[in-house]
Design a protein around this nucleic acid. Structure first.
Lengths: 162, 162
DNA sequence: GTACCCCTACTCGGATAGCGAGTGTCCGAGTCGGAATGG
DNA sequence: CCATTCCGACTCGGACACTCGCTATCCGAGTAGGGGTAC
């Protein structure tokens, strides 16, 4: 029950992309460098985001990734789906139908209580993640940052976009 | 981001234990047989529940596992903790502190927004699971069961307890 | 007949292999920009 | 001087090893109960 660390990587990467001037992007190598992450592995995760339509890619020199939608329309749940897939963590295998007492007598059309409870819990989890957008996160981070940090980021971005 | 199937197995096992006459229990082999599961693997999962204090074990003939608390005081979250451990699925590795702009200037005492958002989402998930007890699940299953199924279960249990 | 002891059978508990998903990396496919060249 | 062509560098994309945790199993540790034996 551990989430892939790719979710953390790409979430931070999307927040960084949201902080860029509109219409601009960054290559995967720069996104990895910004957080000192393995470039090749970061590239792999960005591919997943591209397949999911969260970001769009541009090849060639001055290419890279940029958000395919306004940052306010991208939620953390979108990123989780892109990296991990949208399947629920709890997968009911209907073991209640097996065994000596599970036989054919019962109509099992309705999900069992355990399945229903986990589904409800995961729905609450998803709802929370859907309610948080990359835009909010970027704004909050920008508001908290010190002036020194802000200038350092602007300088680094300017160097990469040049 | 897949939950161990041991959670499903032991959750069903606990519901079965809750349906037994008070004070009685069943060995791991019977719990596995009831749902047609691998006995050795089921035994391993029951060990985890025993270590976590959800069930208590008794050795020797006529031994087995029984709930260590009233079924209404055992939640699905207790079972998840016993099997998977209580650590959050999203583990923040503080990558924001790394890289060219992450340096020492910023005070990182407060968690980053991404970490906070995932923590909040998981808290909602946990709250849902904590709100569902094994007792409720057993009662709901008993209420839905047909008479035929109820007698089959009673007969099987009687055979095992004899 | 009764009390004690031993032995067997049954159960849990931890230590031990096997396997698959996530982790990590690399090289080929595709593309844009600029330099070189000819008109 | 300008248009065209070619080349190179840069980027994404998918294919290929590797590792760790979940899966699955087995055998030893411990115990309760029953049968046997001595008194």
């Amino acid at each position: 029950m551990k989430m892939s660390e790719g979710v953390e990587w790409t979430a931070h990467a999307c927040v960084l992309l949201a902080a860029l001037p509109p219409g601009t992007g960054l290559p995967a190598s720069a996104l990895a460098e910004f957080h000192a992450l393995a470039p090749a592995y970061m590239a792999k995760h960005m591919q997943a985001l591209s397949r999911a339509g969260v970001v769009e890619s541009m090849r060639g020199p001055a290419g890279g990734y940029r958000l395919s939608r306004p940052a306010n329309e991208i939620s953390l749940w979108d990123i989780v789906v892109a990296i991990e897939g949208g399947e629920p963590a709890f997968q009911c295998t209907e073991i209640r139908q097996q065994g000596p007492c599970g036989g054919s007598s019962q109509d099992f059309r309705k999900p069992c209580g355990i399945h229903a409870a986990f589904s409800k819990a995961e729905a609450a989890w998803r709802a929370e993640l859907k309610g948080v957008s990359i835009g909010e996160l970027a704004d909050a981070a920008a508001a908290k940052a010190t002036a020194q940090r802000r200038t350092a980021l602007a300088q680094w971005v300017g160097q990469k976009l040049a």
